[in-house]
């Protein structure tokens, strides 16, 4: 072996050893004590970095739980199983959480809800709403440019041909990004146990609603009547029924609603069964 090669090997090797030693020493001196629980919690989080908890990402949320005492229940994508696990690490009692799911509270599809003008501009709901509050005659109605779909980090939403978005409930984690993205406040998170919701957010009088949409809630109060809803769980609020999550005797109301404004959610297991044969075929 020539001396040149030998000397360079020794020099570089020596430098490597020296710097390695300095780094090893520095890491001891400047060691930042980090709570090991942060790592543990972070490992449990789904790592989707959806921001639904209000923190920039999963690791930030894990840090916030330990350092700022953030509530352990904020992670929607983690589901109800996650909370007791985090609580166990922290050694606290877990509160029960409800798993949430996003729903589209507008049924004003193309042809069902009227347009008041033709919009030519940036194809984004938040941009369209700058022009006269949107091109839909109903000021509460879905504009149909899919800002909610773009905001969904879980691929759980899509635009339908009828101009309305839809939520794939099996993929939806309830992070709430779509709720934030919608300028009209149409997206809402409801508990997964809730079986029926109102597919309309129009607070106007029945006369005004009828002029702009055929499926909008006209606030007729029929569903709140005792002969339709014997449990009396439906109270009118802002000219439409406020639906409690535990509304069970809804069958009659859904059937009799003159505008068919209620939407009955298909329970997950039924949906799966319905989808199963297709998957096999």
């Amino acid at each position: 072996m020539s001396p040149q090669i030998l000397s360079s090997l020794i020099t570089l090797g020596g430098l490597g050893l020296l710097f390695g030693a300095i780094l090893a020493y520095a890491s001891k001196i400047f060691y930042v004590k980090k709570d090991p629980r942060i790592e543990k919690i972070n490992a449990l989080l789904p790592q989707a970095n959806c921001g639904g908890c209000g923190y920039p990402g999963c690791s930030n949320y894990a840090e916030a739980i330990i350092n700022e005492g953030a509530p352990v229940t904020l992670c929607a994508p983690g589901g109800p199983d996650l909370v007791p696990q985090i609580a166990e690490i922290l050694g606290v009692e877990a509160e029960a959480t409800e798993s949430m799911v996003a729903v589209v509270r507008c049924q004003g599809a193309k042809g069902v809800a009227k347009d008041k003008f033709k919009y030519e501009g940036i194809e984004d709901c938040n941009a369209a709403v700058l022009v006269q509050g949107g091109h839909k005659a109903c000021v509460y109605g879905c504009l149909g440019f899919g800002s909610c779909v773009k905001a969904c980090p879980f691929d759980a939403m899509a635009m339908l041909d009828n101009g309305l978005p839809t939520v794939f409930e099996d993929k939806c984690t309830g992070c709430g990004n779509c709720v934030e993205a919608c300028p009209k406040g149409i997206m809402e998170l409801i508990p997964r146990s809730q079986k029926v919701y109102l597919g309309c957010v129009n607070k106007d009088s029945g006369k005004e609603v009828r002029q702009v949409c055929s499926v909008g809630c006209i606030g007729c109060t029929l569903c709140a009547k005792p002969n339709i809803t014997p449990s009396g769980k439906i109270k009118m609020q802002d000219n439409m029924p406020a639906i409690p999550p535990d509304w069970d005797d809804f069958e009659m109301a859904v059937k009799r609603c003159p505008t068919k404004s209620f939407v009955v959610r298909i329970p997950a297991e039924v949906a799966e069964e319905a989808a199963a044969p297709e998957a096999n075929a």
Partner: peptide
Amino acid sequence: RRLVQGIRLGKRK
């Protein structure tokens, strides 16, 4: 290009 509309949207955001 829809320059003003885009800028208005940004200002609003």
